[in-house]
Design a binder for these strands. Structure first.
Length: 416
RNA sequence: GUGGGUGUAGCUCAGGUGGUAGAGCACCGGGUUGUGGCCCCGGUUGUCGAGGGUUCAAAACCCUUCACUCACCCCA
């Protein structure tokens, strides 16, 4: 037996239906807000991710599935979607037609992390990306859409957390102040933070070790270092959320793991996912389009953890699993031949029809019809065929009627 | 990469201190030679995660290894 790869998983019928429904709800919501679907490749040149996500991030350093193709070029299974969408936006000069473009995309991402609850090596994301809008109005709208989506999927216990990371002008000042602060408490930080302190100081803010959290209470806040522009934007974001009646919390320690994020940043957190509290995350990446060789166009977006969403969704599986409209129980060879013909005809008419092809007893066929949840059973035995009739049984009321063979399929369609 | 927990039938799990496996559910058949759910009866299924060791004897004890899972790291 060949086992599947660690961190990968099969999504079986039963679970698939929930995901189909989530997709349906998400697509319709996004399209109502003018987002267009874009489909991007799963493989890209490694360089694209190295340059956008950041060479020094854990994702690029040790989590990507990177390998040379047969000609020796380094390619990578995408660990996220934004980089590819940005590449596509630039490559097809989509800004030329209208700099404002709104996209969504749904698909698998790959990161070689240690799997745990709500985290897999092949995981699914729903992404939206907006180009050409610098106003925080759009960020507020994105957050509102996320909250709405959760609501429509009957997910409770979600809170949007927001923060601003500043821009290329104000972040250096904050980083310097943070570094100064960290060096004063360095000895008391956990070993991970002592390492992070020099490599990626912002991440120390995100540490969950209680002793670190305690020390960080006195850490400088990014919000105190924002330039006028960034501060005004952040204020406008908060005001807009309030006007939209979207509740939120500000967490000055909320940071993102990908280097390209700037200014407004947000996360949707839930209490029902164990350690994986983030269901969705996003924010502005105003410098990325330019950094990847395009014009200087602002951008923002979010990524939803599809698997996590599916785990906490309050949707009821059985509401979306389709059951046979009719089961044909045939007895004898002649009946079976006819049953097969009817099954095909009904299927073509959109009536889901099952039958037994193994010539089993009526009892076992009835049992199977029941197990499958068929609404009706059509019984075609030798006796009936002789009279040129069949029996149609309603499985819930147990009522049975006799139907002539003539125009049978049409009559059955009328009944079911 | 690090740590904890768990691996026994398709599923959920029993199997004090060693004596080469059980239950429920599921599945198949019968009770009703042609009518589902409930009930009754019968039946099938395991290299007890794998390898090695101790022992007359290992699912159990020891070592190694693998898988799953949760957590750290990181992230959606």
């Amino acid at each position: 037996m060949i086992q599947l790869i660690k961190g990968f998983k099969d999504i079986l019928p039963g679970e698939v239906e929930i995901r189909q429904q989530i997709e349906k709800v998400a697509r319709s919501l996004f399209e109502d807000f003018g987002f267009k679907e874009i489909r991007i490749p799963i493989l890209e040149r490694t360089e694209l991710f190295a340059r956008s996500i950041g060479e020094d991030t854990d994702i690029v350093e040790k989590e990507m599935y990177t390998f040379p193709d047969r000609k020796g070029e380094l390619i990578t299974l995408r660990p996220e979607a934004t980089a590819s969408v940005v590449r596509s936006y630039i490559q097809h000069k989509l800004y030329a037609k209208d700099p404002v473009q709104k996209f969504y995309t749904i698909g698998p991402m790959f990161r070689r992390e240690r799997p745990q609850k709500g985290r897999y090596r092949q995981f699914y994301q729903i992404n939206t990306e907006v180009f050409g809008v610098g106003s925080p109005l759009i960020d507020a709208q994105l957050i509102m859409m996320l909250v709405t989506l959760c609501d429509r999927l009957s997910i409770t216990d979600v809170t949007p957390i927001i923060n601003s990371l500043g821009c290329k002008d104000c972040r250096p000042g904050f980083k310097a102040a943070l570094s100064d602060f960290l060096s004063t408490v360095s000895a008391d930080l956990c070993s991970d933070c002592q390492r992070r302190q020099h490599r990626n100081a912002l991440r120390v803010l995100d540490c969950k070790v209680p002793s670190c959290r305690k020390l960080l209470v006195d850490a400088p806040s990014i919000l105190d270092y924002l330039g006028t522009d960034c501060r005004q934007q952040f204020e406008l974001l908060k005001e807009t959320l309030e006007k939209l009646n979207v509740p939120y919390e500000v967490d000055k320690n909320l940071v993102r793991g990908l280097d390209y994020y700037t200014r407004a940043t947000f996360e949707i957190q839930t209490g029902s996912l164990g350690a994986q509290s983030a269901v969705a995350g996003g924010g502005r990446y105003d410098g990325l389009v330019k950094a990847l060789g395009g014009p200087d166009i602002p951008a923002t977006g979010f990524a939803i953890g599809f698997d996590r969403l599916a785990e906490i969704s309050g949707l009821n599986r059985s509401d979306f699993i389709r059951k046979p409209d009719i089961f044909i129980a045939a007895l004898g060879k002649e009946a079976q031949t006819k049953a097969f013909k009817w099954t095909c005809k009904l299927g073509l008419q959109g009536v889901q029809t099952e039958m037994d092809m193994e010539n089993r007893s009526l009892k076992s066929q009835m049992k199977r019809a029941d197990r499958l949840g068929a609404k009706f059973v059509l019984i075609a035995g030798e006796d009936e065929l002789e009279k040129r009739k069949v029996i149609l049984r309603d499985m819930t009321t147990k009522e049975q009627v006799s139907l002539p063979l003539k125009n049978l399929v049409e009559n059955v369609i009328k009944k079911v």
